[in-house]
């Protein structure tokens, strides 16, 4: 449902994406891994139209992602995003954060939006934090609210941009658990992550991005256990055995 064809993207003279091809099918969980600066986050942000790209094509359900087109808002309601630094609205409570999109973008009724938001917060284990402001929540809790906010749009896919990288180690698990549950319900997910163990257990396939190109891709087990590419081997060695 998300298709990338020969996507190129530069910041000034610096070419970040040098022709990326990929396809994410409905219900698939795809992990995007690679060294920092390889263009993973940029790629993800291009899919949601938070960045423009110079050439090639990104499409969602066959519709071209084009920041300049008014259709971009509609695409964004179908492809949600979870950010590394949560980006919750600090002036709204947890439940207001979750309701914001359904209530004001999708124009749903207050009562039903609230009821749905409540169910989502229960689902991510935050039933006792409905009326808490983000500043009163831990990083892990904030990220779970952010996931609920993304889910509230009833998206066809969710993009996760290093969702656990800004978390204290003891909070990583609670967020991954929520994501694992989503994967089991066959939510289409594209996840930029350094959590190799998560990728191995949850992902259907893995894309390894290096220097703006996908240098290796395949079923998670294969790529992560027996990588063929030298760069992938080297990267995985350093991530899994840092010392």
């Amino acid at each position: 449902m998300i298709k990338l064809e020969d996507v190129h993207k530069s910041f000034g003279d610096h070419e970040v994406l040098k022709g990326v091809d990929a396809e994410i099918d409905k219900g698939q969980v795809v992990c995007l891994i690679g060294p920092s600066g390889s263009g993973k986050s940029t790629l993800l942000r291009c899919i949601n139209g938070l960045e423009t790209y110079q050439s090639g094509q990104i499409s969602v359900d066959g519709e071209r992602v084009d920041v300049a087109s008014p259709r971009i808002h509609d695409i964004r309601t179908r492809v949600s995003m979870v950010f590394q630094r949560f980006n919750l609205f600090p002036h709204r409570t947890a439940i207001e954060n979750v309701m914001e999109g359904p209530r004001y973008v999708l124009k749903q009724e207050q009562a039903s939006a609230r009821q749905k938001a409540e169910q989502l917060l229960v689902r991510v284990g935050l039933e006792d934090k409905l009326d808490a402001y983000p500043s009163a929540l831990s990083g892990g809790q904030q990220q779970r609210v952010a996931i609920a906010r993304a889910l509230a749009m009833e998206p066809e896919a969710i993009l996760f941009d290093e969702p656990t990288s800004a978390l204290d180690p003891e909070m990583v698990g609670e967020v991954l658990q929520v994501m694992r549950a989503l994967a089991e319900e066959h939510m289409t997910m594209l996840v930029v992550t350094h959590e190799i163990l998560f990728a191995r257990e949850v992902a259907d396939s893995v894309l390894f991005l290096d220097g703006g190109r996908i240098v290796e891709e395949g079923p998670a087990g294969e790529v992560l256990r027996q990588p063929k590419n030298e760069r992938t081997q080297d990267f995985l060695r350093r991530v899994t055995h840092p010392v």
Binding site: L50, R76, M81, F83, R85, F89, V105, L106, R149, A150
Partner: peptide, 12 residues
């Protein structure tokens, strides 16, 4: 990040 979060839920 606030702008991006708002955009990501489809706000104009």
């Amino acid at each position: 990040g606030q702008v991006e979060a708002a955009k990501s839920i489809g706000m104009k």
